[in-house]
Design a protein around this nucleic acid. Structure first.
Lengths: 132, 132
DNA sequence: CATCTATTGCAACATTGTTGCGTTTTGCAA
DNA sequence: TTGCAAAACGCAACAATGTTGCAATAGATG
């Protein structure tokens, strides 16, 4: 068994996690750095994000355009071992990503494929952008 | 109605399209540039790819890790207006992306969401990597 | 409080993609 | 076949995003 490293609670980590937790949509590294500016270095944000993903505290989501975003996961708190086979909605207008966790997808493939994770994103216009 | 620009057949375009057509999996810009090296400039590959996507000759696919890949689309030849709501399989081991065009996905969302496109990728180990 | 090591800052580098502009090529038609 | 306008190109410069090495700093624990 791998020796588990001992994660620490630092200012940078708290600040980043706080921004993610309080956002209703997924944020990119540049957006997060902008929000915690003054707290820590650009590089630290990258490293904190990697750690948070490893510790299963946040999601890493790839957007339609290839940008990488991070979001909290409501289910992660309750069952840390759950899989992330749910939908994401990516708004063309406001660029925000939502997790639609109640929408599960079931896929059948030949046995020769070993499935590890599903990444499903729907591109379109979100409810609030549809109004205006 | 927009005035349609007049696409031309150039050496660079042929070379890039040829590589994509003869590949069984999706290729990234760096991979494509490596394969057509000597034929044209790095920048030209980017521009050719943009044009081929606009002309509906190839797919643009975003991989799990955010890298952007390009692939031919068998169905595009037959019905140029078809939608791309099929699965992609992304192999963790060899990093290749396959189009699984026969697998269609149906999603239901509240009416307040306007759906434009679906992007579904399954991450795992492909048949040929499973063997070795 | 002392210590161990996870974490940080900084500087430098790497990769991927974009833009402007002067030059070359392509398709078309005289 | 030749001339021309627009499409496409090469090159150089820039921009955005992510990575690495290393010395300095700061959590957690006894």
């Amino acid at each position: 068994m791998e020796k588990m490293s001992n994660p620490r609670n630092t200012k940078a980590k708290q600040a980043v996690l706080n921004e993610i937790a309080n956002s209703s949509f997924a944020l990119s590294q540049p957006e997060l750095f902008e929000r915690v500016k003054g707290t820590c270095d650009r590089v630290t944000v990258y490293r904190v994000l990697d750690r948070l993903v490893t510790e299963n505290k946040i999601h890493k989501i790839v957007n339609i355009d290839g940008t990488i975003n991070y979001a909290r996961c409501a289910s992660c708190d309750e069952s840390p071992t759950h899989t992330h086979d749910h939908l994401h909605f990516s708004c063309i207008t406001c660029k925000k990503i939502e997790c639609l966790e109640e929408q599960l997808i079931h896929v059948k493939l030949p046995d020769t494929y070993q499935i590890k994770e599903l990444f499903l994103t729907i591109s379109g216009i979100c409810p609030s952008c549809s109004l205006s």
